[in-house]
Amino acid sequence: MTPHALITGSSRGIGLSIAHLLARNSHRITLLSRSPSALTSALSSLPPVASSSLPHRYIAGDVSSPRFWSEEFGEKFMEGKDEGDKIDVLVNCAGITREGLFARASEEEVREVLDTNLTGLMVGTRWLLGNKCFRGRKARGEGGGEDRQMPVIINVASLLGIKGGRGAVAYATSKAGVLGFTRALATELGPLGIRVNAVVPGYIETDMTEGLSSSSSLLAQIPLKRFGTPEEVAHAALFLIQNQYAHNCVLNLDGGLSAV
């Protein structure tokens, strides 16, 4: 059966690059983001599913909304749900940032970042687990075929969750929480046959870092002297998906910035 990947924050940037790479590696994709128009464009850019009667699709919605997962997402995801809709790969990539000194940030700005980057991620993952949306692992020798890969959750964190950063207190806090969530959830889900890992990107060429890649002072701090690409982050995610012993694995992808 064609493996199925649900990717949040996947209408552009890192999330869309992961979707493209998984689609090229024989996964069926469900994109999830806020903008229907951006999702329509993203969906049309994916290579077709080679060996599945079920096509790629998208679900539009705000992961930070308290009712999104239980009502909007639940209704759309469960509609016509069959074994093919079970999730093999969950990539939690939705994220926003708000620049500015913490003391000057409004309560609404702080809550928006935390609700999108951390609370929404946790609530969504909990909903999917509670509603048994993950496909069970095929036991060795069952049906006489090859072992099926264990379901896996990939959380996209950030180097700022480890090092911190001026003007990004709420963002850094949320991403540090993503790493804590990854480690704690890994201890609970490993015995149940679900792996949990995290990718920790440094500075990546996306809309979120637009204009920063020309900063000579910032580039000077990065040992490789450049920003990474969304495609390079996607390859790191693919490694964590394919390697069946990768569990509670936190993979830095920052050009060496975490070493200085």
Rank of each mutant, 00 (worst) to 15 (best):
M1Q: 10
T2Q: 13
P3S: 01
I7C: 08
T8H: 11
G13N: 12
S26M: 01
R28N: 01
I29P: 03
I29N: 03
T30F: 07
L31C: 04
L32F: 11
R34F: 00
R34I: 03
S41Y: 13
S41C: 07
L43I: 12
S52W: 12
I59S: 06
G61Y: 05
S70A: 15
E72P: 04
G74V: 04
G74T: 08
G80Q: 01
E83W: 10
G84I: 04
D85Y: 11
K86S: 10
I87R: 01
V89H: 00
R98V: 15
R98D: 09
R111Y: 09
E112T: 03
L128C: 12
N131W: 13
G136N: 11
R137W: 06
G145S: 08
G145V: 07
Q149R: 13
N155A: 03
L159D: 06
L160C: 06
L160W: 11
A170G: 12
Y171D: 05
T173L: 11
K175S: 01
L179W: 10
G180W: 13
G180H: 11
L189H: 08
I194Q: 02
I204D: 00
S216Y: 06
S217Q: 04
L219D: 00
Q221V: 09
Q221E: 15
G228N: 00
F239P: 09
Q242F: 03
G255E: 11
A259S: 15
